[in-house]
Design a protein around this nucleic acid. Sequence first.
DNA 1: CGTGAAACATTAGCGGC
DNA 2: GCCGCTAATGTTTCACG
Lengths: 163, 163
Amino acid sequence: MAEIELDAVDRRILAILQENGRLSNQEIAERVNLSPSPCLRRIRRLEESGVIRGYVALLDPQKLGLGLLAFVNVRLEKRGGATGHAGTTHADLFRAAVQAWPEVVACHAMTGEMDYLLRVFVTDMAHFSRFVQDQLLHHPSVVDVKSSFALESFKETTALPIR
Amino acid sequence: MAEIELDAVDRRILAILQENGRLSNQEIAERVNLSPSPCLRRIRRLEESGVIRGYVALLDPQKLGLGLLAFVNVRLEKRGGATGHAGTTHADLFRAAVQAWPEVVACHAMTGEMDYLLRVFVTDMAHFSRFVQDQLLHHPSVVDVKSSFALESFKETTALPIR
DNA sequence: CGTGAAACATTAGCGGC
DNA sequence: GCCGCTAATGTTTCACG
């Protein structure tokens, strides 16, 4: 988690790869005015230092039939003893469950009244209803759930601001 | 936006590319028990149909100095006439501004009391404070702002559930 | 940092199931 | 229709100047 020194060329490379992670090294080298080998060395360094976490394909939720994006605020049971295992808290149980639910694409512990914010992709309200009833509310650690829904998404990028 | 037919092999290819978007066609072909050419034909078809929206590198916010993730609920002025242009609503103005703010990585129109939910990456509270004062609250269409902050992120994936 | 050569990957055309 | 072979072209990668 140490800070990595990035010069202007590194930042340009990152900006390019955030837009298109499949560009050939040659193409990137050209755009940053470098020959292929030093450009590749920089990219490897960025990968090994963890600045670049990985490369992925982004899919279209609509085309996969995932027509509904929900944000779910969850509050957990605060008494820790109910799990039967010393050292296993309600938070631990809940986080493990979240990892296993494919509909949940993000889960953050939050400030404010609710404990967690979940980002959930489902096909429709029927699917969402099943998810809340059978998974979320069925979970022993969950005491309260408040949902809102995206009517339309105007911006949705994986590109982080590079200072 | 028409539905695209996906068979079991297509779905396996999508699952693989959601995890690692830089695998070679040969490697993918091996994993799905196909030879390179039909595998490539399927991938091209998925790209051209828009099921695959693109390929990107994912960066680590911490390593870029983006230590604070905020969720900002925004309420807009409802009277449309104040812009001076017929046909240009407060919503239009706000959405255009959102596109130009690099700190905002997602913006959804939402059900519930607030109109928009923004996902915002900033370096720290000072940066966030400047963003809210100088950009958000300074915008003529914004009438109210409510923020919460991620204490910790337990899940954060771009991989959508494939039915 | 750049050059060059070997290893590897992509892609189009064609024949077969 | 969808698969797999082959062969030409383009790309990555590494030792070395």
